[in-house]
Computed example of a mutant assay.
Amino acid sequence: MSRPPLAREKVLDAFERILIDEGERAATMDATARAAGVSKGGLLYHFGTKEALEAGLIVRLAELVDEDVAAIESAAEGPVAYFLRSSVMENAPLDRAIIAASRLAQSGNAPAIAALHEMRARWEDALRPHTRSTAALDLVMLVSDGLYFNNALGGDAPLTVVPRGEALEAVIALVEEAIRL
């Protein structure tokens, strides 16, 4: 009888947590098995190598990006407003997958680098029809990057420079005015 998919997800969750909290060097197979509460054999059942574990994380990221792009495209408030509002990190599964993949990319992991480039390209493709020019699209992406980065720096206590409430709404309104078709 095969193991339930929950065990596989627990292993990926543990690997992701170690990457985020301690970095790529600490994210060994042994450390991941311990953190997931599974035996090394249990881990190897789902991921035979560290490369397979990394690939599993990248697949998770791609699936979460698929969900995010669908949400962008169907957002009642509009794609740009949704995208900018969701750029303020909230420790959501997508946020954690991005940070974990970024840790892998920082160590030169080519598939992680490619996945992060693909993520950005998918977001740009979803937003492009809602901007008047390449410069307007670049503005949206740069504001998003700034919101995300500044919030990421704050850890448990986000930096006060990250707009919230009325300030975030003002940023969104300014960007939407600048990019209007």
Rank of each mutant, 00 (worst) to 15 (best):
S2I: 15
R3D: 03
R8I: 09
K10R: 08
K10W: 02
D13A: 14
A14G: 12
A14Q: 12
F15T: 02
F15S: 01
R17N: 13
I18M: 02
D21H: 09
E22S: 09
A27K: 04
T28V: 14
T28K: 13
D30W: 04
D30I: 11
T32K: 01
T32E: 04
V38M: 12
L44T: 10
Y45V: 00
T49R: 05
T49S: 15
A52G: 03
E54K: 01
L57W: 01
V65E: 15
E67K: 11
I72A: 00
I72G: 00
A75M: 07
A76R: 03
P79H: 13
P79F: 11
F83H: 15
R85K: 08
R85E: 02
S87W: 02
S87M: 03
S87F: 00
V88F: 13
M89D: 04
E90D: 10
E90W: 07
A92W: 09
P93L: 00
R96L: 00
A97G: 02
I98A: 07
I99P: 08
L104F: 02
Q106G: 14
N109A: 09
I113Q: 12
L116M: 05
L116W: 04
E118G: 06
A121N: 07
E124S: 15
D125P: 07
A126V: 08
L127K: 14
R128P: 12
P129M: 10
P129K: 05
R132F: 02
S133I: 00
T134N: 06
L139D: 09
M141T: 14
V143C: 04
S144W: 10
D145S: 13
G146N: 02
G146H: 03
F149P: 00
F149T: 04
N150K: 06
A152T: 03
G154I: 06
G155M: 02
V161Y: 01
P163R: 04
R164V: 09
R164W: 03
G165L: 06
A167M: 01
E169Y: 10
E169C: 10
A170V: 07
V171Q: 12
L174E: 08
I179G: 13
R180E: 13
R180V: 11
L181Q: 08
